[in-house]
Design a binder for these strands. Sequence first.
DNA 1: TATTGTTATACTCTATAACTATA
DNA 2: TATAGTTATAGAGTATAACAATA
Lengths: 154, 154
Amino acid sequence: MDNDEDRDAPAAPNGVSLGPLPGFIGYALRRAQLVIFDDFIRTLETVDLRPAYFSTLIIIDENPGLNQSEVSAALGVQRTNFVTMVDHLEKRNLIERRPSKKDRRSYALHLTEEGRTLLDKARQLQAEHEARFARKLGPNGREQLLPLLWKLVE
Amino acid sequence: MDNDEDRDAPAAPNGVSLGPLPGFIGYALRRAQLVIFDDFIRTLETVDLRPAYFSTLIIIDENPGLNQSEVSAALGVQRTNFVTMVDHLEKRNLIERRPSKKDRRSYALHLTEEGRTLLDKARQLQAEHEARFARKLGPNGREQLLPLLWKLVE
DNA sequence: TATTGTTATACTCTATAACTATA
DNA sequence: TATAGTTATAGAGTATAACAATA
C-alpha cells in the first residue's frame, strides 16, 4: 500500500527528504501562503500595498463610516496594532479619520478620493495576481480550493 | 447571475461586509493558515514545539548528518536565521551539532535520544491535530486540498 | 575566490498592559 | 463600569551586510 498523497509536492533541494511534511495540511498551507503573498507583494509593488493594507482599504470601501474597532475586528487584527496601519494610510492620504457624530470617542473611517483611485489600480493588479494562480490550479481548481479553505476556518 | 464562490466563507462580525475578500485565494489561504497554526501551537503546547521547530526535527530525523545550510534550505529558512533555531534546539538537548569529518567549517546535525523521544510524542499530537482538520474537510477533502495547495507552490 | 556558520541589525507582524476621554 | 483609541513594549519571523575559519 503506497502513500501517494504528496505525489505533487515539489521535491526539496539536493535530494533532501521532507518525510511526511508535504502530506501535512499546515505545512502545505504555509508554503502556499508564502508563495502567494510573495507574488501579491511584488504584483502590487507599484501601489505599495501589502496584503493587510489592501484588505483594509477594501473593508473601508465596502463599509464607509465604520470605526477602527469594527474594521480591525473584521480583519482579525487587534485594534491596538491597527492604529499604526490607520496612521500609515492616513499619512499617505488614502483614508481619513472623521470625528464620529454619535460617539466622540471614535472616528468614522472613509476613503479619500486619492484612496479610491489607488484602490481601483490595486484591484486591477490583484486581479492579475489572482488569475495567475487560478491558472496554476487548472479548470475548476479555484472553485474547489476556496470552499475547502473556508471549511478549515469554520 | 450570482456570485456564490464564497458562499461558505464565515461572515464577518457585526454584519460588516468583507466584499470580495472571501473569494480571493490569498485571503482565504491566510485566514486558514492562521487558524491551523493556532490549533497546531496549542495542540503541541505540552512538547513546546512551534511549527518551524517541529519541521526542523522532522527533517533532521529523516536526513541525519545534514549541515545547517542544507536543513535550512530544505525548510525555506535563511541559514542566518536558522542559527538561532539550532541554538535553541541544542540548548533543549533535542539535537546536537557534531563536527563534520569531511568539512571542518560545518556541523552534522543529529537528533539526541531525548529529541527522538520528544519527536515521537510530537508526532502523536500532530496526528490528532491533522485528524481534526481532515474531519472538518469532509470525505476526501484532504485528498483534494493537498494537491491544489502544491499546485500553487510549483 | 567561494562557502559555512555566525553576529549585528532592522523591519514587519503580533500580543499584552495600561492610560485618556468619553459613554 | 465599560468602551474607543492610543502608547509602550516585547516577542516572533524575516531580510541584508559583513566577518572568521575553512574549502
